[in-house]
């Protein structure tokens, strides 16, 4: 087994009285593609969002490259901004709602992290941004405002923006859930292409058919714990747990 890039130990997350994640241990190794499925409210997005500290942990530890994130002093763990920024540079995220910056052009959106976070010279950032946009098939839209693009195009820009930072892990939080059905394919094709490049990715999704082909590992999350973990064949075709079977039945027929 390869050494994990990212490890999570004993993760709990509470929103007030609501105990969303109830003790999760988890690790990601280079090249793994992990699909996280589960009903709405199962905590799958929250779980993903803990990994780049979009959510603060209520309990638990996150380790990156064998180093624990956070600073412990007198039994209290604090998360200095500098550490979190460093984690987020290495763990990129693509959101359901794209979250492009509307006051910047497509090209500026993709350059932004390179210039502002990595402190790169504009010409160099521009070159990288153009390459990333070319990869997602949007070379012709570099000067457009995000508001003028379709949802599928916006999401591809968001992917290019995340890729520009050269993250070691990419998190996808339901990347196709807010898209019109006819636009889902173009985004999934881009994600598939990233899979072929051997990138390490985590995907929260309702597209079970896609998850089956995409993932090296599938996690079924229910009631804030990993209910079932295995290969796509194990979890999606021959689930052992009754809860997983019921979840898949409710999804009905989907094409593998």
């Amino acid at each position: 087994m390869q050494k994990p890039i990212l490890e999570i130990k004993g993760l709990h997350k509470r929103f007030g009285d609501h105990h969303v994640l109830r003790g999760i241990d988890f690790s990601v190794a280079a090249g793994e593609r992990i699909a996280i499925i589960g009903g709405s409210g199962s905590g799958k997005s929250t779980f993903l969002r803990c990994m780049n500290f979009m959510e603060t942990l209520s309990e638990g530890e996150i380790w990156l490259d064998g180093k624990r994130i956070g600073t412990e002093r007198n039994g209290q763990v604090t998360y200095p901004e500098r550490q979190l920024c460093a984690v987020r540079e290495r763990v990129g995220m693509v959101f359901q709602q794209f979250n492009l910056f509307p006051h910047m052009t497509v090209l500026q959106n993709v350059m932004e992290g390179l210039v502002t976070v990595k402190g790169m010279a504009r010409e160099q950032a521009r070159e990288i941004a153009l390459q990333e946009l070319d990869k997602v098939g949007l070379s012709e839209k570099v000067d457009a405002w995000p508001g003028r693009l379709s949802g599928g195009q916006q999401q591809r820009v968001a992917i290019a923006r995340a890729l520009s930072m050269k993250p070691e892990i990419l998190l996808f939080d339901e990347p196709t859930s807010s898209l019109d059905p006819e636009l889902v394919g173009e985004v999934l094709r881009v994600i598939n292409h990233l899979a072929e490049e051997g990138r390490t990715m985590l995907l929260v999704t309702h597209e079970l058919g896609f998850a089956y082909h995409f993932a090296t590992k599938v996690i079924f999350l229910a009631d804030g714990v990993f209910h079932e973990v295995g290969t796509p064949d194990e979890v999606l075709k021959n689930p052992r747990q009754a809860r997983t079977q019921e979840f898949l039945r409710r999804f009905g027929e989907f094409a593998f």
Partner: peptide, 16 residues
């Protein structure tokens, strides 16, 4: 909120 998160996810500091 998505704007704050989009920027944070790139690794920007609060000031940036």
């Amino acid at each position: 909120r998505g704007q704050w998160e989009g920027a944070r996810a790139l690794g920007m500091t609060h000031a940036a």
